[in-house]
Simulated scan of single mutants.
Amino acid sequence: MIRYEPETENETLFLRGGDDRLEVGRVDDVVDAVGGETYTIEYDERQRRQPWLETDEGVLEVDVREAATTLGHTAEAVSELREYDMETDRYGLPTRTVEFANMLVDILERQGADA
């Protein structure tokens, strides 16, 4: 199964898997669509006891720019993104960029207390 890895070129984010490359949009637009440079994940009491989680307050701040430019994605996720075009949506950002941001938030949220 092909794994798509993010790459940036001239501040634009692409997902590349083998010879296939999909434009996602400007990295700054992804950050804006998520809501800012950081995203907060909250962990419940049980999750806080995991040895890999280093937070006493049950809150982890994620660098959105870093997550967007380092997390890999499945071929299925890229196929879903491909259905959206790069036309501007009602938020003034490309539709595919907003959908990618929503996908990123979903991934981050699955790590938290409501998972």
Score class of each variant (00 low, 15 high):
D19P: 11
D20C: 06
D20G: 08
L22K: 02
L22S: 01
E23N: 06
V24Q: 09
V24F: 11
R26L: 15
V27H: 07
D29I: 05
V30P: 11
V31Q: 12
D32S: 14
D32I: 06
A33H: 02
A33S: 12
A33E: 08
G35Y: 00
G35M: 01
E37T: 13
T38P: 04
T38N: 10
T38W: 06
T40G: 14
T40D: 14
T40A: 15
D44L: 00
R46T: 04
R48P: 00
R49K: 11
R49Y: 11
Q50M: 08
Q50K: 04
E54W: 03
D56S: 10
D56M: 07
E57P: 03
V59R: 15
E61F: 01
E61K: 13
E61Q: 15
D63V: 02
R65K: 15
E66H: 11
E66I: 01
A67Q: 13
A67K: 11
A67M: 12
A67R: 12
T69S: 11
T69M: 08
T70G: 10
T70C: 07
T74D: 00
A75W: 00
E76P: 01
A77C: 10
V78P: 00
S79G: 13
S79L: 10
E80P: 00
E80Q: 12
R82L: 07
R82V: 00
E83G: 09
Y84L: 07
Y84D: 03
Y84S: 11
D85I: 04
E87C: 08
T88Q: 08
D89E: 13
R90S: 14
R90C: 08
Y91Q: 15
Y91E: 15
G92N: 05
G92S: 08
P94Q: 05
T97P: 13
E99M: 14
F100Y: 13
F100S: 06
A101N: 07
N102R: 12
N102H: 12
N102K: 11
